[in-house]
C-alpha cells in the first residue's frame, strides 16, 4: 500500500463524532476501534492557517491500522497507512 501520501476518503461517524467506518475504493472498513487520537494545529501565522486537523489512529476489524485525518474544512483523508 501507499505510505506517506494523503488520500481523500469517505468516513461515517458515530454519534460522538468519532469515525465508525470508512470507504476506500470499493471496500468499506469497519467497525473501527480508536487506538489513539490527537490534534494538529495548522500554522496560525500563515494566511490559510486556521483550525485543527484531528487525527484518529484506528484499527479495522481485520486488524489493520490507519490514520484518519479530519481536515479543518470537515473533509477526511487517510494521511498514513499501515500494512
Amino acid at each position: 500500500m501507499d505510505r506517506g501520501r494523503e488520500r481523500a476518503v469517505q468516513v461515517c461517524c458515530d454519534e460522538s463524532g468519532d469515525p465508525a467506518t470508512f470507504v476506500m475504493g470499493q471496500v468499506t472498513y469497519g467497525p473501527l476501534r480508536i487506538e489513539d487520537t490527537w490534534a494538529y494545529r495548522e500554522p496560525w501565522w500563515q494566511a490559510d492557517g486556521g483550525g485543527n486537523r484531528q487525527v484518529y489512529r484506528v484499527r479495522s476489524k481485520a486488524g489493520h491500522l490507519f490514520d484518519l485525518c479530519k481536515m479543518p474544512a470537515g473533509d477526511w483523508r487517510i494521511s498514513r497507512l499501515f500494512d
Binding site: 480508536i34 487506538e35 489513539d36 487520537t37 490527537w38 490534534a39 484531528q54 487525527v55
Partner: peptide, 8 residues
C-alpha cells in the same frame, strides 16, 4: 491535551 499517544 489531544497529543499523539494520549489514549495509550
Amino acid at each position: 491535551c489531544r497529543l499523539p499517544g494520549d489514549r495509550p
